[in-house]
Simulated assay, not measured.
Amino acid sequence: MFRGRTLSEHARDLLVPYVDTAVIVGRDGPIADLPGPDLGPLGGIAGALSYAGERGFTSVLTIACDMPVLPDGLLAALARGAPAYCPDAPVLGHWNTASIEALLEHIATSPRRSVRGWAAAIGAVPIAAPAPILNINTPEDIAAL
C-alpha cells in the first residue's frame, strides 16, 4: 500500500488519461503472461499485446506496478507513438499489438529476455525520463517516500 492505495491502483491511474482501457497483466491480474508464467516483463507485455489485439486495439502502453509516480510528461511522450520505451525503466513503453508474433518468437529464441533487447530488436524509440523514476520494491522504499 502507498498513500492508502495499492501500487497497481496508482499505476492504473497514471495510465487512464492515455488509454481507452487499463488492465492488469500477470500474477495479480486476470490476463496471463505469454507464452507462460515466470518470463518477467516480456511475458507481461506479450500477454497485454495479445489481449489488446484480440479486442481491436492497435497499441499498448505498459507500466510496472512498482512505479506509483512518474515524471511529468513522460507518459505523454511515450503515448505519441509506438514503438517507444523509456531506457531508464524499459517496461515503461508503448508497443504495437501487431508485434505480438515477433515478441513471442523473440521470447522463444533470444538468450537475452530483456525489454531493452526487445526494444532494440524492433527499433523502438528511446524516450529518456526527464527526472528519476521512483521504483518501489520493499516496504523501506515506500517509507522513504
Rank of each mutant, 00 (worst) to 15 (best):
V19A: 14
S59Q: 12
P87A: 13
R80D: 11
E54A: 13
P71Q: 10
P68I: 09
I31V: 15
P90M: 08
P90Y: 08
I24Y: 07
P87V: 07
A64W: 05
D20Q: 15
V69Q: 14
A46N: 08
D88G: 13
P30F: 02
G93Y: 07
D20F: 12
D38F: 13
R80F: 09
A22M: 12
I63N: 00
R27E: 09
P35K: 03
P35M: 07
T21R: 11
V91I: 14
I45L: 15
P71H: 06
V91D: 03
G56Y: 15
A64I: 01
R80V: 13
Y18G: 06
R80K: 09
A46G: 02
V69G: 06
D33A: 15
G29E: 05
G43Q: 03
D72K: 12
G73L: 10
S59F: 06
A46H: 02
I24M: 14
L42F: 14
L49H: 03
R55F: 13
G36Q: 13
Y51E: 00
I100W: 05
D72P: 11
P87C: 10
I24K: 08
T58Y: 05
P30A: 11
L39V: 11
T62H: 10
S59W: 01
D66E: 12
F57Y: 15
G73V: 03
P41S: 11
L92N: 02
L70P: 01
G81H: 12
Y18A: 05
L92I: 10
L75K: 03
A76G: 15
D72Y: 13
A82P: 07
D20P: 06
C86W: 06
A79L: 10
I24A: 06
G93I: 00
I63C: 10
L70I: 06
A52C: 14
G26M: 07
D72V: 07
G93K: 00
Y85W: 15
A98Q: 06
Y85E: 03
M67N: 03
G53Y: 09
A77E: 13
L34D: 02
Y18P: 00
G81K: 14
A32L: 09
I100P: 00
A76D: 11
H94N: 14
L75F: 10
A52V: 08
L75C: 11
T58H: 12
T62N: 06
R55W: 13
D38A: 15
A46F: 00
A52W: 12
G93F: 03
G40P: 05
L92D: 04
R27S: 04
D28G: 07
G43C: 03
A22P: 06
H94S: 05
H94D: 05
D66F: 09
V19T: 13
G43R: 01
L74N: 01
G36W: 10
G26R: 04
D28V: 08
R27W: 10
